[in-house]
Design a binder for these strands. Structure first.
Length: 917
RNA sequence: GCCGGGAUGGCGGAACGGUAGACGCGACGGACUCAAAAUCCGUUGUCCGAAAGGGCGUGCGGGUUCGAAUCCCGCUCCCGGUACCA
């Protein structure tokens, strides 16, 4: 009987479905495990990246089930977003049509993968039954004072009269039209995330990877210092945040963000034209460009002055794009002597530099003459009341000079101690159609009012026209716009929709009761399942999604939305304290699968040269062609339709292949055409436009889902990912084929050897321990490798027949049970063929017996000066003295000692002895 | 630019500061076969050597240590994020 993956996989998919094997139900008598993997955007077919993310997460959920947990492992779709609108614009397909068709395809893909998802709990964020509650949660945050209206800049295309996403802007231009894009200020909705900055910096009680925590910490960017109030010459207050208030006496100018509200009043008539021009130039720059510190500093003098409150000095006010309007107050005091960027700026525009720190252990700074700013420790000089105070490298009040200055400023009412965060409030408005409408209306009076709960959800109209007008089609939808307020007076409906990150900030709750029409989530379900025990997904979400969902959880907690859940927990005897502080207790990230590298065809082209290109008469693929075999000879580097880029002798030649040209590819029979020519592929992200996408569906057809799962788990370090290698998959398939053969073989002992029995059992139990450790630690590749090792051993035992049937059966059963989470179909089939009772997936995980697994001997390495010179087989209990005498007795060692005494002997029994001579 | 991560045989990758290269792919040699595929057996970091054995070797340059792929300092290149891709 051969391993027929197609038949087996179909059979068990249907059987499991019929048995309801993967329904997850509350059972207070069993320990729960909520496993969650990031829900995908339904972009079309399931691609390799989805498999790579989901198959191992599924394997781990299955593993936890075998370990005795009641596991909830749901899946859904993050279904609002830009690509659906692009499809609507480009191909005239309505977003819901496109989205739901994709969801159907992807759900089928996940089913073919053999996931244990409970599909009764599926959610789609674009479904009114879902976004009704997204809207309701928005209202709750609004009522709780956490949502507000503010201003933020957007990418505005004057040509299209529309807001563009960052990815639609390339080099300051719209990617489709090539027309310039400007930064425009617009009134929009925000969540007050910064109010939770301090709490978000606290990772106590959650097991998240250090790099992710560090990225979030840096993203939040807490800094301690002071707010100091300067005054403009006109008497306007001009507030700055500074981490170094102690250097106030060295402030020689101020710099405002070009967007700062006081720029207009500060600017003198002479400077007006230059300032306006600079503001316009800034509006064309992205934030990333603005922060590139290596760029030459630019800026313009406003002509205005401000007064330094500590010494009443009059200092000039400049504007420069390196000051961002979103950080602090959008204005800085510049202390060029002790800040690198300020120093560069001062030198560039010949502004004064006044040192106020005497560097520790060095001569005083002399200006003119400084060639860089000084940022080290020392003693304050020329600084009025704090002259002589020591300054060090500590932050905030831990620095004596900063502490002294803050006290002095606060006494005089000139400033106050302050903490500033780099992180900004969460901008949740999107000027788009395909998102959840924000349930608000604008009254004629200008007042803003929330839509009442019984009118939720505010439905997205289906009859929108993407071709008419521009921008958000909701702006043109008369019926949608027409709303009434609570008094029945006409009002205009909000047309902004919610950021899709909001949908994905609470989906873990909706899985608990996706059909509940009375709650966002059912407290009884939540009381059992919450919080998420293990979350997996891409590290690219480190600072956005993962920060937003943490914020959201804390906000819901503070608004009281978990109160009913806490009550239900208490009723079941579960202590709710601390359980609603974080959404996910453990998080692990995976890397990305990249496209495979491929050489392009080497072609010989004949034809005629025209300006800048060659028009081909014939193109022939010929791997070993010499450079003079034709007009152009070389590798195809790129192909766009019928235009080739050929790398011919160091230069890239553009070759056009018209219909009339002959294309000859010896490896492909019949008449060939230009589309069959292969171009070079780099290792990079898989994408349709690059033509390097591998369809997992094809591989499933050829090898089966079990093989694809096993290969993806085996071939990479999960956290890292890497390029796809189409050749390696046969190794995974051979492995499963071997498992099949071993599992279905009639084994009978030939001549039982007790030491062989002990050796096999030792390996079996070591493999149990190894796979258990690795599955717990998300190290799938070494878990699979250990199973392959067991396979190898069982094969050689099969040949020798040296163990009894009992030991053989223990080996085979162990192999199947340990493999079950990884390759669920074949494990189930072979389990049943061997007469196993019930599904292999509800069996207990085979635990290792440490006594059986224990090694009796171990190879002791003997080093001389750190180099391996001998290996000795010793008992595991060998002690230090024994190890050293065995090592010294080694002939090889004697040769190096030449009768002398070793200088030093380091023993790490039983594995190693190092002799220093 | 800034923040985070990475670099180990021909390839994917293993390796509590203690035998570098487990496991797999590929390649090479052999068996089976009329032949090929599949399958099976063996070899496979590299250099010198008939062998025994030895030299070198984890992106680059330094350092700590009896001992460094692993820890520290300084670089190079690649990947992710950079707030409207998700």
């Amino acid at each position: 009987m051969r391993y027929d993956h197609a038949a087996i996989e179909q059979k068990w998919r249907e059987q499991w479905e019929a048995d309801g094997l993967y329904r997850a139900r509350v059972d207070w008598d069993k320990p729960k495990h909520y496993a969650l993997t990031m829900l995908p955007y339904p972009s079309g077919e399931l691609h390799m990246g989805h498999w790579y993310a989901v198959a191992p997460s599924d394997a781990r959920a299955r593993y936890m089930r075998m370990k005795g947990y009641n596991v909830l492992f749901p899946m859904g779709f993050d279904a609002f977003g830009l690509p659906a609108e692009n499809a609507a614009i480009q191909r005239n397909i309505h977003p819901p049509t496109w989205t739901y068709a994709n969801i159907d395809r992807m759900r089928n893909g996940f089913k073919s993968m053999g996931t244990m998802f409970d599909w009764d709990r599926e959610v789609a964020s674009c479904d009114p039954s879902y976004y009704r509650w997204t809207q309701w949660l928005f209202k709750k945050l609004y009522e709780g004072g956490l949502a507000y209206r503010g201003e933020a800049v957007v990418n505005w295309s004057p040509t299209l009269q529309t807001v563009l996403a960052n990815e639609q802007v390339i080099d300051g231009k719209d990617e489709r039209t090539g027309q310039p894009v400007i930064q425009k200020l617009m009134a929009q909705w925000f969540f007050a995330l910064t109010r939770y900055a301090e709490q978000l910096l606290d990772f106590d009680g959650i097991d998240w990877p250090d790099p992710i925590r560090m990225m979030q910490t840096n993203w939040i960017g807490r800094s301690e210092g002071a707010d100091v109030t300067f005054a403009t010459e006109h008497g306007d207050e001009l507030e700055v945040f500074t981490t170094r208030p102690d250097t106030l006496w060295g402030a020689t100018f101020m710099v405002l963000a070009p967007e700062h509200t006081l720029v207009g009043s500060l600017t003198t008539d002479e400077q007006r034209a230059a300032v306006t021009a600079y503001q316009e130039a800034t509006a064309r720059r992205s934030e990333i460009e603005r922060m590139e510190a290596e760029r030459e500093k630019t800026g313009v003098f406003t002509g205005g002055y401000a007064v330094n409150p500590v010494n009443d000095e009059r200092i000039p006010v400049w504007i420069a794009d390196y000051v961002l309007p979103t950080y602090g107050s959008g204005a800085i005091m510049a202390v060029p002597a002790h800040d690198e960027r300020d120093f560069e700026f001062a030198r560039q525009f010949e502004l004064p530099v006044v040192p106020v720190i005497h560097p520790a252990g060095q001569e005083p700074l002399v200006e003119p003459g400084m060639d860089e700013s000084y940022v080290g420790p020392g003693v304050m000089v020329d600084s009025g009341p704090i002259t002589g105070v020591e300054t060090n490298l500590e932050k905030g009040r831990k620095n004596p000079s900063v502490a002294a200055t803050i006290d002095w400023l606060e006494e005089r009412g000139l400033g106050r101690e302050a903490v500033n965060y780099r992180v900004r409030d969460w901008l949740i408005s999107r000027q788009r159609y395909w998102g959840s409408p924000i349930p608000m209306v604008f009254k004629d009076s200008g007042e803003i009012e929330a839509v009442p709960d019984d009118a939720l959800p505010v439905l997205l109209p289906d009859d929108v026209d993407f071709q008419q007008g521009s921008g958000n089609p909701l702006n043109w939808h008369e019926e949608f716009l027409r709303a009434v307020d609570s008094e029945g007076e006409p009002a205009r409906r909000e047309t902004d929709t919610l950021d899709t990150f909001m949908c994905s900030s609470w989906y873990q709750l909706r899985y608990l009761s996706p059909d509940d029409e009375d709650h966002a989530f059912d407290p009884e379900e939540a009381a059992y399942w919450l919080p998420v025990d293990v979350y997996t997904g891409g590290a690219e979400h480190a600072t956005m999604h993962l920060l937003y969902t943490r914020f959201f959880t804390k906000a819901l907690r503070d608004i009281g939305l978990y109160d009913a859940t806490a009550e239900a927990m208490r009723a079941h005897g579960r202590d709710p304290s601390g359980l609603f502080d974080e959404p996910m207790l453990m998080y692990r990230s995976q890397g990305q699968i990249l496209g495979e590298e491929r050489a392009g065809d080497i072609v010989v082209v004949d034809g005629v040269r025209e300006e800048g290109r060659v028009v081909a008469h014939s193109v022939r693929v010929e791997p070993g062609a010499s450079a003079d075999a034709g007009l152009v000879v070389g590798e195809i580097v790129r192909r766009t339709e019928n235009v080739l880029q050929v790398a011919a002798g160091g230069e890239s030649v553009t070759v056009e292949v018209p219909e009339s040209a002959t294309v000859d590819i010896p490896a492909i029979q019949g008449t060939n055409d230009v589309n069959q020519l292969k171009h070079h592929l780099e290792i990079q992200r898989m994408s349709k436009s690059r033509g390097n996408v591998i369809d997992p569906g094809d591989l499933v057809a050829q090898y089966g889902a079990d093989t694809v799962r096993t290969y993806l788990m085996f071939a990479y370090e999960w956290q890292k990912g890497g390029p796809w290698d189409s050749r390696g998959i046969v190794g995974a398939h051979r492995f499963l084929d071997d498992v099949w053969k071993l599992g279905t073989a009639d084994y009978s002992a030939v001549s039982v050897d007790e030491s062989a029995v002990a050796a096999l059992r030792r390996l079996v139990h070591q493999t149990r321990a190894k796979v258990d450790r690795d599955m717990a630690a998300f190290k799938w590749n070494t878990a699979v490798a250990a199973l392959m090792g067991l396979r190898n051993e069982l094969q050689s035992v099969q040949r020798s027949g040296a163990v009894d049937e009992e030991a053989w059966a223990e080996g085979i059963d162990t192999l199947l049970l340990l493999l079950a989470p990884i390759a669920p179909f074949i494990a189930e089939e072979v389990w049943h063929l061997r007469g196993g009772e019930g599904s292999v997936h509800v069996q207990a995980w085979p635990e290792a017996d440490p006594e059986v697994a224990r090694d009796e001997t171990v190879t002791m390495v003997v080093q001389v000066n750190g180099k391996v010179r001998d290996r000795i087989e010793v008992g595991v209990d060998t002690d230090e003295g024994e190890a050293i005498s065995l090592a010294l007795a080694s002939e090889r060692v004697q040769g190096f000692l030449e009768g002398g005494e070793p200088k030093k002997v380091i023993a790490r029994p039983p594995k190693l002895v190092n002799i220093v001579i």
